[in-house]
Design a binder for these strands. Structure first.
Lengths: 135, 135, 135, 135
DNA sequence: GTGGTCTAGACCACA
DNA sequence: GTGGTCTAGACCACA
């Protein structure tokens, strides 16, 4: 299953699709060049409206994650073609700042936070599809 | 100025208040035991709807960041009295996962990410109010 | 009338709205800071679906032409805040190239084209709201 | 290579063919009287659907750019035999109007626009095949 | 009251 | 067969 939707969540469905696809790519479950199911097929598979799926695909295309080839279908983009790299790194830094604030309010010290982070990075990337790691 | 609101932002105003108060505490600009302005004073000061401010205060109280003492006003809670610590750490880990996915799509390697993070932690906590660091 | 929709046109309605608003601003009929009618009011006025109008407003916001202020409504952005300037100039040059090709196929020489263009620029900008020209 | 198709472009393929042929003629790479490859040969050469190529040829013929001579094949029309000249000039003026609006939204003044245009015309026509200029 | 999200269902352009 | 556009109508978050 390349996607999992929580119907009751406060997170809009189309955003769950966007996050899910990004996560599957990052984890190596989807690869550059792979063809995604059509908008309509995805809608049917997860019992969603096709407009909702189309909105998610449009957002993913705007982010440079997927590429729509007219009537040929939709494909995972190559990571080299990263769009707005500097903008994305800015967003990343802002997310880190938020993380620090939340850590402080959870009663975590900077040193504990560093250790947690390094452990989490290693665990996370180790969980990736091994084939992906060989590249 | 203990709070700064960006009117044009896509982030809801009430969430900006929540984040702003948390940030001010983490940076040492607000301290445990400090009295916050009333909902209506804050609303007037920043030209906001008082329902918006009330919603933010309610969210902060739910998070254990502030405490409402009936007619005495609203106060910054002591950090030791952290509520739902394990729940917060869970949220933190989830935020980290999202960070990893975003980093991957920005073309950043795990090693680069670790270095960025450690540097950012050190920079961030060095910028804190020195008084806070003495504690 | 700040907008005119041709129902039978092959140009999608939402694009007609986008072009119409841009044109009204360029001609000086709409000014920076003006409040646009709400999505629903515009939909009612021109007998359109509110989703169609919302799509047009979203496109205009992405282009930095208008700014949505949450529940305060939608406003014409200040031209100084031009987004993606270099990208827009690239598009402009590409439009010029297309113009040259079309001119050639209409049997127009480069010199005739220059004269037509200068005349058209002068005529077009003279037709603007005089108040706008005083600024 | 008399034609170049971008598969990932948002511009429909058949329009890319129409523009490409017009551009090649305007640049002097294709000349009046030249025989174009058949619909099926073009489709094979560029790995396109033959319906797509046929649609493009139909559009070019409607514009008077090419002429189909029954079983003899398809030929580039003579420019003197311009069809619908006044209609084409009307379209040209409309394209100019759009250009003015886009220029305004890119923060370009009328004078800057004139200079850009004259420079672009000179550059563009200088790049033409020299043989064409001798005519 | 404002815009955002979502569904259901129709029609169209492109390949 | 593919995605894009549009309508009609419902419900929700925010201010």
């Amino acid at each position: 299953m390349w996607l999992r939707i929580k119907p009751g969540s406060t997170v809009p469905v189309y955003q769950q699709i966007v996050s899910g696809v990004k996560e599957s790519i990052a984890k190596g479950a989807l690869h550059a060049g792979d063809r995604l199911p059509t908008v309509r097929d995805t809608a049917t598979e997860f019992a969603l409206n096709h407009n909702t799926v189309a909105k998610a695909y449009r957002a993913l295309e705007r982010d440079g994650v997927i590429v729509t080839m007219g009537s040929k279908g939709t494909f995972i983009a190559h990571i080299h073609e990263v769009q707005n790299r500097s903008e994305k790194i800015e967003n990343l830094k802002r997310s880190m700042d938020t993380l620090f604030i939340d850590a402080h309010h959870a009663g975590i010290t900077p040193e504990q936070l560093k250790q947690m982070f390094i452990l989490a990075v290693d665990t996370w990337f180790a969980a990736k599809d091994p084939k992906e790691n060989l590249k």
